[in-house]
Design a binder for these strands. Structure first.
Lengths: 213, 213
DNA sequence: GACAAACCTGACGCAGGCGTCACGTTTTGT
DNA sequence: ACAAAACGTGACGCCTGCGTCAGGTTTGTC
């Protein structure tokens, strides 16, 4: 036990009291187990006990962190959403043409999904539940953000005057399905997926514009 | 009680014995109640008792018709699928151009959804569960049928040589989201929805073709 | 009209989830 | 080193769902 100096600063990895670290670890353990369970058997069929069994905690401890399983799902999504939203939104706005706007957005979206497949499993399995729970589509309000950006594009004259909600829905719907298929491969090709879905919507928008005349 | 003839044929609506009629009615009552419950609270959270409570039958009777709730969901989908598949498939093959192929398919799809909104609610709420349960996407194998038709189109030279699975996934994904939004309106405009989604994919395919060079 | 088969019924035993709480243990501040 | 606060633990009472089955009721048959 080398006590080589009386420096008051301990040499621990996380610079915090043990209490705080344990709390963070327990919370994360619950979220991890819940992510697994929700992705595997679905939110509706999952029980608080199923989640607890995926940790080494006791039943009672769960309730020190969350009041019920719904708040766990909320926490999972709220933990992930800000980062995902920011990344996708920033990528879109970085585009200077319609092509870039679309391709950048999908690329950021797919890169995010590749990084967190367990979250994708939750979204894939529970999209309907999440939609009805939050009264909005999965993953925060990805669709609403996209709709807002589309409205901006229309106002600026870059995009034809389509129904932004519907176009956003179509893009998220198609994008998600393509993303799922991409990730079913063991070597996901983000570039190919981006190219494909971008071509669809770039061509689709041109066609809509043509027909608007 | 006019007994105006001794014709052996009874003048009943369904030409069958009472036993058979009751059986059919009970089965249908269970399927109706289950459709309601699955659409409302989701398959995972639903219990056999929730379903039974939606009928005027006793618990035990349920088990005379179905062994468990999974088989009820299967029955709901299997009751609807053949009709839906046939209609969509027939509509598509009736098309003589790519435009018609796409538009006809979506129109048949949307008309079907308009006719049975309760089924749409089930699909919308439980798409993820259904996918993982049948190991295929919702509603029979709508996506696989579409993929097969796309492959035919590619072989015949009408369509560019894209990945049929991925294109089918995108069409179903986008089409479903657009359909959901259309049906959220109280006066669903099938024509508008068909025009929109058709324009997207017709333009998208042209763009894919262009890029294939 | 009467018997048998088919069917419906709901109470039953079992299993498991829910949220709580009294107790023991660990951490913190002094 | 000690006391107090904070937290972890798991058994407990309650409730609800599961699938069954013995008994009652309805339907078909002769």
């Amino acid at each position: 036990m080398p006590d080589h100096a009386t420096t008051t600063a301990p040499i621990e990895d996380p610079p915090a009291g043990k209490r705080e670290r344990t709390k963070a670890a327990n919370r994360q353990a619950i979220l991890d187990a819940a992510t697994e369970v929700f992705g595997e058997i679905g939110y509706g069929a999952a029980t608080v006990r199923d989640i607890v069994r995926g940790t080494d905690l006791a039943t009672g401890t769960f309730y020190n962190y969350f009041p019920d399983k719904e708040s766990v799902l909320r926490a999972i999504l709220e933990d992930a959403a800000p980062d995902a939203r920011a990344r996708v939104r920033a990528a879109r706005l970085r585009g200077e043409t319609v092509e870039e706007f679309i391709a950048n957005g999908f690329r950021a979206y797919y890169e995010f999904l590749v990084e967190d497949r367990r979250l994708l499993a939750v979204l894939r399995r529970n999209a309907g539940t999440i939609r009805s729970m939050f009264d909005e589509p999965a993953l925060g309000s990805a669709t609403e953000d996209l709709a807002a950006d589309i409205r901006m594009g229309i106002a600026a004259g870059y995009l034809p005057a389509v129904d932004a909600e519907v176009l956003a829905g179509a893009m998220v719907g198609a994008g998600f399905e393509i993303g799922v298929r991409m990730l079913d491969d063991d070597t996901p090709d983000v570039d190919a997926a981006v190219a494909f879905v971008s071509a669809i919507f770039i061509g689709g928008l041109q066609e809509l514009e043509r027909r608007a005349d």
